[in-house]
Design a binder for these strands. Structure first.
Length: 789
RNA sequence: GCCGGAGUGGCGGAAUUGGUAGACGCUCACGACUUAAAAUCGUGUACCCUCGGGGUGUGCGGGUUCGAUUCCCGCCUCCGGCACCA
């Protein structure tokens, strides 16, 4: 038994003293920026899920370092956010204090896992020297017109007392606290991410080394859809409503127009409608309704005294204000063609509107998925035209225009909470909204008496008069600071750039260093960030490309997603169920090395796994075996078979780690270890290679064994063994003998044997000779198979 | 409903330019060591049968092929994303 506690303590200290993981900036080497998603340092400490991501990324970083790359493998803290603030409210303590304490705990726990971070580059998003640049980026967005003030209804969480972005919602509830979210019109800052929708979508095709599932999630999230706007004149208002449609071929079936209560058109209608009060009441109710409770039964209110003119038939059509029409999608107005849409059909039935079938087909109405070549009917001169062809014809005839719309909406960027980056703007009565000049950044968070959210469009910062009142940077007159803060996603949208140049106080990142390190070569983290952090970060990156801060179109060249670690037997780990596994406790019990090998070996990295407290014995046994072998090492050369296995293992382990196939890499190392265990002698050469290949997985124990082999320097600074394809070739191969498609046995021949030699071997095997007697060889594949029929 | 991913022993999983299915690990059984147990070491561990042999088998049903976990067609189930998206 090796003493993992003593070993791990000793080497952790040694590594720190010698700073062996400091980033090597030798520009003669190829660079490798191996980034792992930094954590929110929560009070509940490190989870095995964290451990899995960090260990995977670390194994990769360690191998690349040993393969001679200059590796940048940093860690930091995404520390703004609500939990620290909630804690501060409860305990009347500055969130910075709780945050600092949590970071200390997290860092201590992380350091127990044997991770090779360069701590000289540690960053913290709540550090003013960091968020100075988050604010600086916001100002660049503002100056480019990509940040704007809006009064549209937003998602409001009544429990967190703040507005939220669409990305912060989970099926109509607050992603963080689970409360039903309301729609609430309020002043807010919004980022024009939709301006970048096309680039965000199209550039996904350039990300060859991202998993398809993440790209698909982003495509769904952006949700590009091509259609038309069709103008309907409104009488007697005299204005025009543009409706959005992807189905202009059903235009002759149009029996109503529906406008979103959130649309500004409603104000215009109100001036002329006969039932103003009813419409007002409906709109108010729609605005305050909880998103999750929105009536799926499609209600609406008819605008009395108002009608729309059908652009083709010139007939008058009723106009409804209806909450099933989304304010933020398309034009906020649609036309209803009930015969060919389930929702329009239900609406028409409810309000007794006409239903006219305009595309031929059998069956009950509504007829939904009609074929593209189904002919139009009841459509005047277009009768008989196939529906797909009819789309542009009818759209053009109606005066429509082609338009591309997105499901993605602009990013609601302001939060009415304390613990976030202050938005660096000053409101001036004369000059309007003025950005804080660079020289005055960062705008630091002042101390407040109470962190309690106000429940209004202002954050607790609004109560600090001496902070709020600030002279206008432009005219010097009296101004007021913006009191909204940024969402938690702000810092993580660009942090990868700060690791490159963490101590620079004059620029966000030195451009030479940026060119040296970007893009991130491999980014490791959770799938849950696919439609949040990873979209935001790509968006900011493209803006920074446009303003010359960065030099690449994409921030992350390759992406590896980690699977969830479930509780023993499956299901979510939760404190309530008492099934949470504490990685530090596991490290104490069996050692970080065994935990790392276990995590690496248990399943493919991206796959969900259930924790298995029994299976963890295997990796520990494996390490014990490797440790025990040291007493049998001899200075002899490996025999041919062992040398072959040694090189085969080096090649496969190198390949496997490169593509995060840690499970099969560990299997290969176990096979080699078992072979050494069975061998009469343990050749030093083979054992040395084994220790070096194992080093990325088990960094502590391999240091001890490396020292035993007579080395003074760390194994992690040694060079990863080089595999030789020639040596990895086997001398003999086993060939399957198939008769009528069934494998009936095997013969062993030397590699590269031709058919004659194989047939001779078969003849020497009585059973196989009888089986194949009188049959013809159908297929012979060298070194693989011979098939008789 | 739309889009993506996946279904292999008691369990986690391995193998795909089509070529011996079940590597490696866990579990379990038996044996060695021990007064005994643990640990360790050794052997075995897909299923079935009439067991020195034979048959079946990679979610289900078809197909292509000398040969299919791998390719094609049609289903089922599970996981993830989106969803009143016009």
């Amino acid at each position: 038994m090796y003493d993992h506690r003593a070993i791990e303590e000793e080497w952790r200290r040694t590594w720190e003293q010698n700073s062996i993981y400091r980033t090597d900036e030798d520009s003669g080497k190829k660079k490798c920026y191996a980034l792992v998603m930094f954590p929110y340092p929560s009070g509940s400490g490190l989870h095995v899920g964290h451990a899995r991501v960090y260990i995977g990324a670390d194994i990769y970083a360690r191998m690349m370092r040993m393969r001679g790359y200059q590796v940048l493998h940093p860690m930091g803290w995404d520390a703004f956010g609500l939990p620290a603030e909630e804690y501060a409210i409860k305990n009347k303590q500055h969130p910075q204090e709780a945050t600092a304490r949590n970071i200390a705990v997290f860092k201590d726990q992380i350091s127990r896992l044997g991770l090779s971070y360069d701590w000289d580059r540690e960053i913290n998003t709540t550090d003013p020297s960091f968020y100075k640049w988050t604010q600086w980026i916001f100002i660049q967005l503002f100056k480019k017109g990509l940040a704007y003030e809006s009064n549209m209804p937003v998602n409001w969480c009544p429990s967190c007392k703040t507005g939220l972005a669409n990305e912060d919602l989970d099926a109509g509830t607050c992603e963080r606290c689970g409360s039903a979210v309301e729609r609430k019109p309020m002043r807010q800052w919004v980022l024009r991410i939709t301006d970048y929708a096309d680039r965000l979508l199209d550039d996904l095709d350039t990300l060859d080394d991202w998993s398809d599932s993440v790209k698909e999630v982003q495509r769904n999230w952006i949700g590009r859809s091509d259609g038309y706007t069709i103008p309907f004149a409104i009488e007697p208002v005299g204005s025009v409503v543009d409706v959005f449609t992807t189905r202009p071929d059903t235009l002759f079936g149009c029996s109503f127009i529906a406008i979103s209560p959130e649309s500004t058109l409603v104000d215009t209608l109100l001036k002329h409608a006969e039932n103003k009060e009813e419409i007002e009441a409906y709109r108010t109710r729609a605005h305050t309704a909880k998103a999750a409770e929105t009536d799926k039964a499609q209600t609406g209110v008819l605008a009395q005294g108002i009608s729309a003119v059908h652009p083709l038939t010139k007939k008058n059509i009723p106009v409804f204000i209806a909450d099933f029409v989304l304010g933020g999608y398309g034009t906020g107005a649609v036309f209803g063609s009930p015969a060919h849409d389930a929702r329009d059909f239900a609406f028409a039935v409810r309000y007794n509107l006409s239903i006219t079938q305009v595309i031929a087909g059998d069956g009950d109405l509504p007829l939904i998925n009609t074929p593209v070549d189904a002919p139009l009917i009841h459509s005047g001169e277009y009768d008989g035209t196939p529906s797909e062809q009819a789309k542009p014809l009818l759209a053009n005839a109606a005066g429509g225009k082609k338009i591309t719309v997105y499901r993605l909406q602009d990013w609601v960027f302001s939060r009415q909470r304390y613990w976030g980056e202050p938005i660096p703007l000053i409101h001036c009565g004369k000059c309007g909204v003025v950005p804080v000049p660079d020289k005055d950044l960062p705008v630091t968070l002042p101390d407040v008496a109470s962190y309690e959210p106000t429940g209004t469009a202002e954050s607790p910062l609004a109560a600090i008069e001496e902070w709020v009142n600030a002279p206008c940077p432009q005219c010097g007159g009296a101004g007021k600071r913006e009191t909204n803060t940024m969402p938690q996603w702000a810092g993580s949208s660009w942090y990868h750039l700060r690791y490159i140049d963490p101590h620079n106080s004059t620029v966000l990142v030195d451009s030479e260093k940026e060119k040296q390190w970007m893009p991130v070569d491999i980014y490791t983290g959770g799938m849950e960030h696919a439609a949040r952090h990873l979209i935001y970060a790509r968006f900011w990156h493209k803006v920074m490309l446009d303003i010359g801060v960065v030099s690449t179109a994409e921030p992350y060249a390759a992406l590896r997603t980690v699977g969830i670690v479930q509780a023993e037997g499956g299901g979510k780990m939760s404190k309530r169920l008492g099934n949470v596994v504490d990685p530090v406790a596991v490290v104490d019990a069996i050692g970080a090395d065994a935990l790392r090998v276990y995590i690496a070996h248990i399943a493919p990295f991206s796959q969900t796994v259930a924790w298995d407290s029994r299976a963890i014995a295997g990796p520990r046994r494996f390490l014990e075996r490797v440790y025990a072998l040291r007493d049998r090492v001899q200075d002899s050369a490996p025999d041919r078979a062992l040398l072959q296995l040694q090189h085969e293992t080096i090649l496969s382990v190198t390949d496997d780690i490169a593509v995060y196939r840690f499970n099969t890499a560990v299997s290969s190392l176990m096979i080699l270890t078992n072979a050494l265990y069975d061998a009469d002698t343990v050749p030093k050469e083979t054992y040395t290679a084994l220790i070096q290949m194992l080093a990325p997985f088990a960094p502590y124990i391999t240091e001890v064994l490396w020292r035993d082999l007579g080395h003074n320097e760390s194994v992690h600074l040694s060079h990863f063994p080089q595999g030789n394809a020639e040596s990895a070739q086997r001398d003999t191969v086993v060939i399957a003998v198939q008769v009528l498609g069934k494998t009936r046995g095997t013969v062993t021949v030397s590699r590269g044997s031709n058919q004659e030699i194989v047939l001779r071997s078969i003849a020497e095997n009585t059973a196989l000779a009888n089986r194949t007697k009188g049959l013809a060889v159908k297929v012979f594949v060298e070194d693989r198979i011979i098939s008789f029929v």
